[in-house]
Nucleic acid binder design. Sequence first.
DNA 1: AACCGCTTGTGAACGCAGGAACAAAGTCGC
DNA 2: GCGACTTTGTTCCTGCGTTCACAAGCGGTT
Lengths: 227, 227
Amino acid sequence: MTACGEPVIQPRPRTIPEATVARLAVYLRVLSALADAGRSTVASGELAAAAGVNPAGLRKDLSHLGPCGVRGVGYEVATLRDRISGVLGVERSRACVLVGIGNLGSALADYAGFGSRGFEFVGLFDAAEARIGQRIGGLTVRPTEELEEVVTATQASIGVITTPAEVAQSVCDRLAAAGVRSILNFAPVTLAAPEGVDVRKVDLSVELQVLAFVGQQRLVPAVGEPA
Amino acid sequence: MTACGEPVIQPRPRTIPEATVARLAVYLRVLSALADAGRSTVASGELAAAAGVNPAGLRKDLSHLGPCGVRGVGYEVATLRDRISGVLGVERSRACVLVGIGNLGSALADYAGFGSRGFEFVGLFDAAEARIGQRIGGLTVRPTEELEEVVTATQASIGVITTPAEVAQSVCDRLAAAGVRSILNFAPVTLAAPEGVDVRKVDLSVELQVLAFVGQQRLVPAVGEPA
DNA sequence: AACCGCTTGTGAACGCAGGAACAAAGTCGC
DNA sequence: GCGACTTTGTTCCTGCGTTCACAAGCGGTT
């Protein structure tokens, strides 16, 4: 039973759950640290403990990449790291633009962790005259007017919005129109984007609110709790 | 300090799902904007569109607060806003400390949105000599040594970690030992905390990684796509 | 006063993520 | 060379979150 005539053989290119992708990124970081520490192999239990997840769930996550461990031994650190890197596409460099160079934008532009994960900022933009010309992380802040020009020239596919809420939607529209396919939004508004453009929202105050709520809920356990 | 005479009246003190709490915070923001715009009532469809969720899901979320809408009309903007505010505990002021005053820490300390949500920073801490004494958002940066002292004096229950990854765990330990019950961690490490202390992690590079992955996955749709 | 349309609130079904348990497989020790 | 132990990869199951669909209720209109 030879399945000839099927040229593109991808182990398991089917959809990987989003939650799994997020955890893979965490595993990747832990594996890199282990590799730097000189470890050659690691078992799912230890890796799961370091990542803060359940061992069985970790193995299920890894199963999406096909078999990549040795039974009775564990996972080879360097091999698994490279496998995850390949799946997440860390090798390929992705051009990103960042709009809104306030404190948060500066923090992102300065963060060295992005570069090692395949993300390269190719443009920093701000509307304030005072910000323009400032150098952050090796780049010069440019006026917002040049946004479309830079996106087109660099073929940037990712845009990050760290502007005030009032202008976030217009920035989103311009990014989408210029050809950006993925947008990460830190402004506290829900953005609308055309079909084919994926918007992901990170709301810092919501995170704090949820944290505070579960904290206070813990103090009021239940109505009839026997101590 | 006895908490007598504090009738904690919650219509339905049952457990509210965490995902619902996160959305309630979003609804609250939208409702505030509507109130400022002079709107008196709003239907679930419009509110859901503004928040970017499903109308039925929104109604189910609100059902956790008990009946608070008028059939055939919708929800009264001001009433619903106040109801959500009460449940989330926005009125009460919560003392927070922030450790690690880099770019990200400065952004959080400066962000005015927290104050209106019931969060008040009562201490900013950093280990770098150069940062100490700097004034941000009305507070002065203090040396890390004073952390325990301030937490005890202010009864702060929330700690935010924006330090480098290497020292995040030790900061977490100190916060927990000093009495902090909830910790929001921005450092790219998985923190271990004692029982009774809730740790929530926000990983900016993971967010970007997931965004990029779903973007590239979209370009390779499937094997037999009928267009 | 009665009808009609609109909207809420709730019940049920679907799909998905998470956790536990088990069989397969490979290695180490004897 | 063989047995036993260790660990992976998978399968089943339980619970949660989300979505769809419908009955109940209120306001406006005639």
